[in-house]
Design a protein around this nucleic acid. Sequence first.
DNA 1: CATCCACCGGAAATGTTGGGAC
DNA 2: GTCCCAACATTTCCGGTGGATG
Length: 341
Amino acid sequence: MPSVIENPEPLNPEFSPKQLQHRITVLKQLSQYFNSTGQTIHLHGPQGSGKTAVTQNLAQQIDRTTVTAPCTRYNTEYKALRHISSQLTEQDQGTGHHTSDLIRIIEKQLPHQEPVIILDDIEHLLLNADDSLLYQLSRITNREHLTLITTSHQPITELSLEERTQSSLHPRTESLEPYTAEQTYQILAERARDSLKTRSLRREALTYISATTQNLTAALTWLKTAAENTDNVITENHVQHHRKNAYLQYSKHLLKDYTQHHLLTLQSITQLLDQHNTSTVRSGEVYQQYQSLCETRKIEPLTERQISTHLKQLETLQLIQSQYHYGGSKGKTREITANTF
DNA sequence: CATCCACCGGAAATGTTGGGAC
DNA sequence: GTCCCAACATTTCCGGTGGATG
């Protein structure tokens, strides 16, 4: 099938343009902090507001070794330390070390590399583990040779950090506002220009997307999905038509570091919501639906306890929202809503 | 006031993977 | 090979919650 896409890269949500639009002030502010090493910076803002793009852009500007650890993938202290030490030494550190060994390896590299370490989306790490990684890194020997950047959608004060970690980190903080509809439109338009055939995109299609969501990751996925499914012109109608499918693609993108069971759990929720037209489902129903999905696919289902943790992770990814009842007329359960555009 | 609902979520046990040492 | 060990995902077990109902 002929496609309207000439160059797929600019539509990739991970694509990092050389010039970052609408984030100049933050970039200026942050790059000032790079005049000296030994800093800690925490950047927070909603999903798709450019946190990752900003940190990557900063890293490109300065001439220092940079290690990025997306905490969705490196979601334990050990995985993160292993990744960081492997990147710094340029050889895989494997398993079987004590965390203190990995810290020592990193320590030794700091003085001659003066690296920047970026821990992206730290809430996913904090969900699995305690804040020991942050504490260790904030007090590491040769700390003055390290610049540490953390990002999350919550402000740092709202992450459950121990007192000692909080005070030992004392980061400079910056926050990002979501893009406005106008800004979203502009960014999408620019990416489309670099990616799509000329005259293959209607203005109203972009207006529709950027009015619906200001989460740039989601918006780009939507545009990309629409583009992949046409050989002619992307119209407003076409974009509307692919709304659901695009959100599914976006979910899959967020879940790329997770298991098939996470996706099945999410699908159970959306199916139930579609089926009986209610706005919430309870965790018990979700588990039943999940079990029957597993059965039709000949997959051994996980236990209810484990799916409960998976639900928590979907919530941290902001794919769902939960209202918890710790007893009461409904018993102990949670009522779940799925997010959409 | 007792009992029930419905499952949350902590803790400990178990299973699996993949080292490294002998 | 085989033994031992660490990390981690998952299972097993279960105490606990607070409004509704009789």
